[in-house]
C-alpha cells in the first residue's frame, strides 16, 4: 500500500503554504506506517495546535486534534486506556517545546509507547511567524525584530536526557532517511522521538534570506552533518559552524516501557 492511500483525498489540497515542509514529513510518516504494516483500525494520530498539528486531519484513520501543547498528554491517556492502539503524534516546535514542554519531558520520562514526530520549523507558522524556543540566535521573526536573543532548545538532546527510547533528527530534504528513522521509531517500543527540520518559507525563510522553498531545502542540504562526522570533528577539536544541523540516529535503547501491549 502506498502512502497516498492513507490520505483523506476529499480534504486535499492541504492548508499549508506554498513550499511548506509539513506535507513532506506527513508523506514520510505515512510511508513508514504503511511499511510497518499497521492497519488503519489500530493507529491513532494525535496532534496539538499549529501548522504541523493539522496533519492528522488529512489522514484517513482515527485522529485527535487537541489543544495547544497537550497532544502528548492526550496520547498518554489513549495509550494507557487501550495499549492495543498504536500512537503517532505530530507536533511542532512551539507546540512541543514551549507550551507543551512539561508534557514532553514527562512523556519521555514515562517512556510511553508512542512515536512523536516534531516538525521543527523554528517559528510559529500558524500565527504568522513569531519566535519559538528553537528560533536560532540572531534570526528574525515578528517577535524578534532585532534578532532572537534567547538560546534554543536542542529537542533531540532534551528527549534523550528525559529518557526517550529512540531519538533521531533529519530534515525535509532527507526524505528517505527520515522515513527510515520514523520506521525505526515506530518499531522501537517506548517513546520514540523524531525531529524533522522543515522549511517555513512564509514565516521563517522570508525574513531570513531564504525566501524560496528551494533556498531552504538547499540550506538543509548544505548545512546538515551526520552525527558521526560531527562527533569526530568535535573530538578532533575542529571548528563546526554554529548553524550546522546535526542529523542521524542519536539513541536507541531499551528502557522499561509504559503502556506496551498487555
Amino acid at each position: 500500500m502506498n502512502f497516498m492511500d492513507w490520505y483523506r483525498a476529499d480534504r486535499l489540497p492541504t492548508i499549508f503554504c506554498v513550499g511548506c515542509g509539513n506535507g513532506t514529513v506527513i508523506n514520510c510518516a505515512l510511508t513508514a506506517v504503511s511499511e510497518v504494516g499497521w492497519k488503519r483500525e489500530e493507529v491513532v494520530f494525535v496532534s496539538g495546535i499549529g501548522c504541523s498539528s493539522r496533519a492528522p486531519g488529512y489522514i484517513d484513520a482515527d485522529s485527535l486534534h487537541t489543544t495547544h501543547g497537550r497532544a502528548l498528554a492526550f496520547a498518554t491517556g489513549i495509550k494507557l486506556a487501550n495499549p492495543d492502539l498504536q500512537l503517532v503524534v505530530f507536533t511542532g516546535d512551539g507546540d512541543l517545546a514551549a507550551i507543551g514542554g512539561n508534557h514532553f519531558i514527562h512523556a519521555c520520562r514515562r517512556n510511553v509507547d508512542m512515536t512523536v514526530i516534531c516538525m521543527n520549523n523554528q517559528i510559529y507558522g500558524m500565527t504568522g511567524g513569531q519566535g519559538s524556543p528553537t528560533t536560532p540566535r540572531g534570526a528574525l521573526s515578528t517577535t524578534t525584530p532585532y534578532g532572537a536573543e534567547e538560546g534554543t532548545f536542542d529537542l533531540t538532546a532534551l528527549s534523550i536526557a528525559a529518557g526517550a527510547n529512540f531519538a533521531a533528527r533529519w530534515t525535509s530534504y532527507h526524505v528517505k532517511e527520515l522515513t527510515n528513522a520514523i520506521r525505526a521509531g515506530l518499531e522501537t517500543p517506548g517513546f520514540s522521538f523524531i525531529e524533522a527540520a522543515v522549511q517555513c518559507p512564509t514565516g521563517y525563510g522570508r525574513r531570513n534570506r531564504l525566501r524560496e522553498p528551494e533556498d531552504m531545502i538547499e540550506f538543509f542540504r548544505t548545512h546538515s552533518m551526520l552525527r558521526q562526522k560531527y562527533d569526530r570533528l568535535l573530538a578532533e577539536g575542529k571548528l563546526v559552524p554554529p548553524d550546522t544541523i546535526v542529523v542521524g540516529e542519536f539513541v536507541r535503547r531499551d528502557r522499561p516501557v509504559l503502556g506496551g501491549k498487555k
Partner: peptide, 13 residues
C-alpha cells in the same frame, strides 16, 4: 520516488 515523497501537496503520482 523522491519527488512524490517530497511533494508537500501530494500532487505527484
Amino acid at each position: 520516488g523522491v519527488c512524490q515523497l517530497t511533494c508537500p501537496d501530494q500532487a505527484i503520482r
